[in-house]
Design a protein around this nucleic acid. Structure first.
Lengths: 150, 150
DNA sequence: ATGCCTGCAAAGCTTTTGCAGATGC
DNA sequence: GCATCTGCAAAAGCTTTGCAGGCAT
């Protein structure tokens, strides 16, 4: 029925209430990046009686099925986000915790180039920038002003 | 005395046996990237009687002092490596577990550029490529043949 | 009806913490 | 001598797993 059921079936997963609910939450939550705990709380608030173990199991299955992508930002709990097909990397603001997505084909190309130079091909990668907001007057806008910091 | 003592003092840490030993291990181990457990085992094998808790505490202090850098490859235990001042990123071979270091100023520049476009400056970053060895004849060298996988 | 799913609770693994005694300066 | 550090053991945080019953097909 609902698009969720289709997606689950297509992923080869039996259509069950916990899976449908979790998929809905991941798709509809304002928060794109959720921890297992986040999902669990959302379920509880929605009146659904699922166990945290099931949340972990389902998220893991979703990941295997390619429905979601799992990220490990720094230490701390893993976060999951629905896979919209659009690959992207992340920037985490160290002041607000906000997560910003970005995509840079140039960086990706360079990654492959570097790997090839070492005799490898890139199967997956993880790129996270830990950032802070630019204060006004901190620097000019455009081109290639390096901040020096690393 | 030993260079280690100097380094510790310079870092503002009291010179104690566990700290000296751990620093020696990090500096002399053939393995550049060690988990707390690795360091602990090395200490035990060296006949030193330190607790794992101390290993964690010391590694954390070393990190704060800038003596070591801590990485979280995927999930799993954190790894530490002595900070040789030379910033670099990592490639992890998915077949052998081998860790290869690399440095790409171009990628770093692009990172800053992207961050700036979003109104941020890069404070730190984490880039890990998960790679597999190129089989012979797997592909030609140069240009931009994307593997499709991501 | 059957086999995959779920909830619960317990265990696992990595890392942190409280405390009393030891140690460096 | 005093503050800091250490070892031990216990706890904490996140995630996985065993098992008995439940649900989708």
């Amino acid at each position: 029925m609902s698009g969720e059921s289709q997606e689950l079936r297509r992923a080869g997963l039996k259509v069950t209430l916990p899976r449908v609910k979790i998929l809905q939450i991941l798709e509809n939550s304002p928060q794109r990046h959720m921890t297992a705990e986040d999902v669990y709380r959302a379920l509880i608030e929605a009146g659904e009686d699922v166990g945290i173990a099931t949340v972990y199991r389902v998220l893991t299955q979703f990941e295997s099925a390619g429905l979601v992508v799992r990220h490990n930002f720094d230490s701390g709990p893993a976060v999951y986000e629905i896979d919209q097909g659009e690959h992207h990397d992340h920037m985490v603001c160290m002041e607000t915790g906000e997560v910003i997505e970005f995509h840079s084909p140039e960086i990706e190309r360079l990654q492959e180039e570097v790997a090839a130079q070492h005799g490898y091909r890139v199967v997956a990668h993880s790129l996270v920038l830990y950032v802070k907001p630019l204060k006004k007057g901190d620097k000019a806008a455009g081109k290639a002003r390096s901040t020096g910091e690393d």
